[in-house]
Design a protein around this nucleic acid. Structure first.
Lengths: 211, 211
DNA sequence: GTCTATATGAAGATAGAC
DNA sequence: GTCTATCTTCATATAGAC
């Protein structure tokens, strides 16, 4: 049971192939039950292949887990499209960013991935780093770049785009993520999300006024 | 392996007794290695008792885990003392609250408890609720009550103390908790904590001005 | 209550045929 | 590459003596 190097990761298998089936089954089971409570027998059964096939493609349970997380990180990174915010007024752009961010953050899939990554980071040292780079860092950089461009155009006043991004996201998230990850909030309705986003945007614009 | 009811929890065992030794060993091992990767053999060995003794006092691994978390929740609740903030200016009071909160939140012990609670909440439904009540909810209520009193005295302007508390803590935490829990930040020095707190307090006071 | 020794079962991993 | 059948290890839990 050696520590797995997440740096050496296979490329994405062809859709519909047996490795892809295994990966899909691994994703479903690991995200639902965690690493330790998922058995290779179950993954093989759900994937509809034999256990030996699983081991033929992924050498061990750890490697399969690492491949599953890597695939998910790729998906997260690809799902964050650089859309066109430039045409919008600042308030509308921030609102759009906020809604998209909060919806993504609180979705069941994101919660499940977060949970399993947090749980297994001590055993897989690279896991946290890769997850952060693919998800949160990606998002933060994108928002910070937008704010910087807006500041350059004189649409908003701010000194430090990265710090302003942190404040914005901090106000946006508040304690919601914590309550959600502890299983205390069923979900957020669209109107609740709107309300939370509007408040965070309003506070942000007080701190960073538009001229 | 039935779901354990965390509501029926034994009282605190006498210090130095064998149950207390077992509980201490369980705490050390569960927080370091998580639930699944900790064996009852190890706990018995660390506690310096036989495995049968462990089972005599705590009927199963799940019950032992539940008792360990319950003990920790008690400790968290007790560690949050209602100190006297009333004499201080608002800025100084918020700064003190912020420093205390951030130091507590980012400490290795808090991180370890958070990690194991997040990981095991799906298997132990009551776990998240009890942890939240003993820790975060406790803290938030305390801060909200202070803000309300300050508002009543006319020291600060705010409509909704609970919401203001969420904003304050959101700005204070920002992405630091996430990076810490993913193993990306070694720790925060005292000066970094001071800087973060000062910035959050400054932003808060812009949003909620003192007359 | 506490111990030593052991039963029982689950799960990671592999051998060998096709 | 894929399967069936099996090996091996290890962890939970208990029996029975003191």
């Amino acid at each position: 049971m050696e520590t797995v190097l997440l740096d050496s990761v296979m490329e994405e298998p062809a859709a519909g192939s047996k490795p892809a089936q295994v990966l899909a089954a691994a994703r479903a089971e690991f995200l639902r039950h965690g690493f330790a409570n998922t058995s290779m027998d179950t993954i093989a059964r759900v994937a509809g292949v034999s256990k030996a096939t699983v081991y033929a493609h992924f050498g061990s349970k750890e490697e399969l887990f690492a491949a599953m997380v890597a695939t998910n990180c790729r998906r997260i990174a690809e799902s964050l499209k650089e859309e066109t915010l430039e045409g919008l007024p600042v308030r509308a752009a921030l609102t759009q960013i906020g809604r998209q961010f909060l919806t993504f953050l609180l979705s069941p899939d994101t919660q499940a991935i977060y949970r399993v990554v947090v749980a297994e980071t001590p055993r897989f040292p690279d896991l946290g780093r890769r997850f952060y780079a693919a998800g949160p860092q990606n998002t933060r950089g994108r928002i910070a770049r937008y704010l910087e461009r807006a500041a350059d155009r004189g649409l908003i006043r701010l000194d430090d785009p990265a710090r302003a991004t942190e404040m914005f996201l901090g106000m946006l998230i508040g304690p919601r993520h914590l309550k959600r990850v502890l299983g205390l909030e069923p979900a957020m309705s669209d109107t609740e999300i709107s309300s939370a986003v509007d408040h965070a945007v309003a506070c942000f614009l007080v701190l960073h006024p538009t001229p």
